[in-house]
């Protein structure tokens, strides 16, 4: 039987169907689960994905209102029991606002995804980034990847800058390598500079997980890079080459893209 994944549909999210499709392509049975359904039905799922979009229209603060929904409380319970929880973009903002990431002190909101700000640049940014995978075997969402692998992924956000006012939390993030995906140059060198780090995140973090590795908040959209046809021709490295080589072949264009590895990892973890 396929592992079952609930894609949580808050009012205002807009990536739930493509996330469902990407999960299904990795062999998972993905269901859209509305935020106001009976939460007792969540127990039948093996993992949860909070997709991207604008839950509650980003009112008050991105992710702030969804984080207070009862369904997130239920998901937090599953997180503490070890079930995998992935937040993508707005989903990442919800996980951070709910205190699930990094989750050093259980339940405490220990960081924020603040407005983009780097080298004097700010505001919404939609572009492709390169991320480097750190210690992939330590999370449910990177375990099918190889150490130091470089993956191109798209971002589209205005509030994607991981930051914290706590020196202790920053130290934990650094010491325990909880930043699992790092923005980097195409060659793999981690960079804090724009455009490689597009939002000014601390530690150049594109994704941060909890210590156990079963909850991860990531700002890039893997579901928008799950097929080769979604990759721009100009992307540097092996993925750009693969895309260019696939020109003229529908079958090859429908091959796996770099983002699929996130969902393949979840499949591997659950299988």
């Amino acid at each position: 039987m396929k592992p079952r994944v609930a894609v949580i549909q808050f009012p205002g999210v807009n990536c739930e169907y493509e996330t469902q499709r990407a999960l299904a392509a990795s062999g998972l049975e993905a269901k859209i689960f509305r935020w106001n359904l009976d939460v007792s039905r969540l127990s039948g799922f093996d993992a949860f994905v909070l997709p991207g979009g604008f839950s509650y229209q980003d009112r008050v603060r991105a992710g702030a209102i969804a984080a207070k929904d009862a369904i997130v409380g239920e998901i937090a319970t599953f997180a503490h029991k070890g079930k995998p929880i992935l937040g993508i973009c707005n989903g990442a903002q919800v996980l951070v606002e709910a205190g699930l990431v990094p989750g050093v002190s259980r339940g405490r909101v220990e960081m924020a995804l603040g407005p983009n700000r780097t080298d004097g640049r700010s505001g919404y940014l939609c572009t492709w980034t390169y991320v480097r995978v750190i210690e992939p075997m330590r999370t449910a969402f990177t375990c099918a990847m190889t150490p130091e692998e470089i993956v191109p992924l798209p971002i589209a956000h205005a509030e994607g800058r991981f930051l914290t006012s706590s020196r202790e939390i920053l130290q934990v993030l650094e010491d325990e390598h909880l930043a699992r995906l790092l923005y980097c140059e195409p060659g793999g060198e981690v960079s804090g500079q724009f455009p490689w780090n597009p939002n000014g995140s601390i530690l150049s973090a594109a994704a941060i997980s909890n210590r156990e590795g079963n909850v991860m908040a990531m700002m890039p959209h893997p579901e928008r890079a799950s097929w080769l046809s979604q990759i721009p021709d100009w992307i540097r490295g092996e993925w750009g080459r693969a895309k260019r080589d696939a020109r003229g072949s529908i079958e090859e264009m429908e091959g796996a893209g770099p983002g699929k590895k996130i969902f393949d990892s979840l499949m591997k973890y659950l299988a």
């Binding site: 008050v60 603060r61 339940g107 909101v109 603040g114």
Partner: peptide
């Protein structure tokens, strides 16, 4: 000040 899911809403003290 948002300190947890149950406490605070209007500001995230890490950037506000």
């Amino acid at each position: 000040a948002t300190l947890s899911r149950a406490k605070g809403l209007l500001a995230n003290p890490h950037f506000q």
